[in-house]
Amino acid sequence: MNQKIVIIKYNAGNIRSVDFALRRMGINAEITGDPDKIRTAAKVIFPGVGEASGTMEYLRQRGLDIVISQLTQPVLGICLGMQLMCRYSEEGFTDCLNIFDTEVIKFTGGKVPHMGWNALEKLNGKLFYKLNKGTYVYYVHSYFVPENINTTAVSFYGIPFSAAMQRDNFYATQFHPEKSGGYGELILKNFISL
């Protein structure tokens, strides 16, 4: 596949692991914060582990908030990336990108962070082509998106929450496909094949 894949570079942790996962699949992505390169990519991945308010501030200062919101090619937000694509996050009381009209709230029951492998239910949409319900994926997060109109997969941690979402060209997973073994790689492959 010769299409240009861009991984958005910003002040979030462990962006590298997405790049490594793509390389294992024979795909060379570019990690960049350059707005032009992001706009002209065939596919854009917006990963991240970190804190919402600091990362949103970083994106705003560089105009990347507007760049991301206006993308028309397939975009995949992962973990914090997905949360930043929502309207508002309780973490740092942060206004986010508002691609998904929903809030991000903190887990109050159980041990936090929700860390480890959890099963996907109610799978829907192209990201989950060839995947069955009950497939386990890897999560590390303290905040979550409740089930909503854009939810395309659900996991349960005391309550159901959005494991994945989609609206038009915007796709997002709360879990880490890049750390979810062979099935995670299949989800990344499904995204790249869109």
């Binding site: 490594f20 294992r24 890897y138 880490h176």
Partner: peptide, 8 residues
């Protein structure tokens, strides 16, 4: 390890 292993 990070390059080659697909779990945390």
């Amino acid at each position: 390890i990070a390059e080659n292993i697909n779990i945390p």
